[in-house]
Each structure stands twice: as C-alpha cells, then as structure tokens.
Design a protein around this nucleic acid. Structure first.
Lengths: 185, 185
DNA sequence: TCCAATAGTATCGAGTCGATACATTGACGA
DNA sequence: TCGTCAATGTATCGACTCGATACTATTGGA
C-alpha cells in the first residue's frame, strides 16, 4: 500500500461520486457530460465526432445519447454548411437553462473552500495526470482555443482573432471555448 | 469561466477516462470497481451492503453486478456466520489474479512521475474534495482501519489489535484495509 | 409474540456501451 | 470523369448498469 495507491483510489472514488451525481433532473450521467461539453465547445467542436473524442466512447454510443437529448428537446442538430457529412450540434434554450441546475454544486463548493495555493496545486496535479493519461491513450487535449499554437490574436483587428489551422476568423467570445483541434502553444 | 470551473472540468474528464479504462479484460467498469473494493476491504466490509455504500448505487444494482462476477468465477459468496441475512464476499484466486491486470497503470505512472510535494498537494486536495462531497451526501468515509477512533493498537498483544466498535480482534494485516464503519480518530 | 428494521434478491424499463454493418459525402489520383 | 478510399454518422444487437418497486428471510426489540 503505497502513498500513490491511496491517491489513485481517491481519484477513482471521486470519479464515481461525480458520475452518480449525473442522475439528476431526468438525465443520465453521459447525457449531462454531453450537455456540459456542448456548452463549452466552440463551433468547430460541437459535432458528434468531437463529442465522441471528448468522451472517449464509440461514435455509435454518442449517436444514441444525442438522439435521446434531441428527443428531450435539449439539443438541436443542423446540417454543417461546409461538410455534408457532418452535423452541427447546439444546445436549445431549454438545454442552456438546464446548465444552471448542474448538480456538481457540492464539489464545487468544497473546492472553493480550499486555500488558493491548494487549489492551484490540485489543479496542476490533475492537469499533469490528465495529460499523461491522454498521451498514453492517444486522446486529444481539448484545451482552450486561446492557448493553442494556431491561435492568432487580433489578427483581423482588435478582438478579431484567427485560427491558422482551420483558416477561420474567431470572435472574441470563442477564444475561451474548448476546441477539439487545440494544441498547446 | 473561473479557475474553479477548470479544475472541476479536469476532475470530470479524468473521471471519465478512469471509468472507460474499466472496459478491459471482459469486465465492465462497475465490475472492476467491485473487484478493487473487495481486494481492499476488511472482512466486516466485504458484503453487498458495504459495496452498495461504497459505490453509492442501490442495492439492487450491486446485487446484479455481484451475480455477474460470481458467474464469471471471480467472487465467492458464503453465508455470514454471525448474521443469517448477511453474505460474505471474497475474491476467488481467479479474482485476485485479475488485480495484476488492473488497467490504471498509465495514470498511476503519471502520478509517480510528479514531484513528491506535488503528489502530496494533489492528495490533500483530493481528500478535501472527497470529504466535503461525502458529507454533502451523507456517504461513509471508508477510511483505513488503523486511522479509526475505534482502533485499539496492540490491545491483545503485539500485532494483535482490537475494534472497539464491533468488539472483534483484528490481525495486523487487517489494520491497513478499508472499513465501512471507519471514523477518523 | 408481534412488529419494525435490516440484508439481500427478483424484475422491469430506460439508458450506456462496444461491435458490427451500413449509407453519405468528400478528397484525391488515374 | 471515374474509382477508390477515408471520414462522418446512423442502425441494430447483446450484455450490462442503474433506479424503482416489490418481495423474502432474518434479526432484534417492545
């Protein structure tokens, strides 16, 4: 029983607590995660494929979860103008309203109650774990747009940025969203 | 988008990575968690009820998961001598052999690669989050036997401890196991 | 002795998930 | 232009998870 085992066990159990939290407001854990993702992802990443990579499940599974959310009126699908194969996902007004009820309040409160330097240490440690785990599995980072090597700040004027990878203009509000193509600068 | 949100998102996503890891060796995530629990819990806690409290699901769900594990020959059930309602669970030899294949290796490696003081900070932060989350939900701590207020070290001789709550002698090896009755000293 | 609490099982329905097969669309070269 | 191959999603199957409800058996106290 090393110290490391204890930490891993903590992560495991916290993971389970968070997962179980997702059985609220008539949704399932996987559905909650999809809703949270769609609230935070930019328009290039709000697709079934993006959600598939983020969740780390198969595309068939994601397809079913999205159908359930669409039936419930929380998610809207529209054709992607640039690519006929792809589908654009958006939260409906009802879906956005649901976000306010996200049941992770108790854990969020616990985090806020920690000393700031402890919060920072926790965040760093988790990020390191995450990065290593993703690298081992070939997963994508899904980092914040503005921290990406392809992000060109103010390239089209003040507050008008640009993505050099997708060659698309970016509004200021999009710089803080997560992107499936993100690569740390 | 506060700093706190980012940390919560990290915990969420790491939770999902760990959960998905559980689809290896023909088991399901919930089954892996049960196997890990049974490997770490003391004899007072290796019951369907103990596992139910640990996982935070309903007893019906646990009953099914245990039936699947029993069918697979990984878990053995025996009548509890003290209480005719209760069942004692034990990993079979096959079940114990499976532990060596536990798929969390990559995350464990990532943790080991962190600086020791970062490991400690991560561990403390996670423990604080865990404690608060459990308190908010009325869950049990499932701490280590020897850290419990009911643990009487060497009460029956050197290496022969005693549980004052259950009024049972404890072997030395049991002091390091987790217990559903544990309360921090 | 009666009765409530406790431990666990049985069953149902909705959802998750991997696997496989399939339909469309797009990209690229001959 | 045509053919092939890759990419994006959907459809379907079977095993499992999970909450909810109802049920049995045992325990322990009034």
């Amino acid at each position: 029983m090393t110290d490391s085992d204890g930490t891993i066990e903590l992560v495991e159990r916290l993971a389970r607590l968070i997962t179980n939290e997702g059985h609220s407001h008539g949704l399932k854990p996987a559905q909650w995660e999809a809703v949270r993702y769609l609230a935070r992802a930019n328009r290039f990443s709000r697709t079934p494929g993006g959600l598939t990579a983020y969740l780390g499940v198969t595309k068939g599974t994601v397809s079913q979860t999205l159908m359930a959310l669409e039936r419930a009126g929380l998610v809207e699908k529209t054709a992607n103008p640039g690519d006929g194969r792809s589908v654009r996902l958006d939260l409906s007004a009802k879906g956005r309203a649901l976000l306010a009820l996200d049941g992770m309040a108790s854990i969020r409160q616990a985090l806020a109650g920690l000393a700031p330097e402890r919060q920072a240490a926790l965040r760093e440690g988790l990020a390191a774990l995450m990065q290593a785990a993703l690298a081992a599995r070939g997963g994508r980072a899904f980092g914040i747009c503005r921290d990406c090597r392809h992000f060109a700040r103010d390239a089209r004027g003040p507050g008008a940025h640009f993505c050099r990878l997708l060659e698309q203009p970016l509004e200021d509000a999009e710089a803080g969203q997560i992107c499936q193509e993100q690569q740390a600068a």
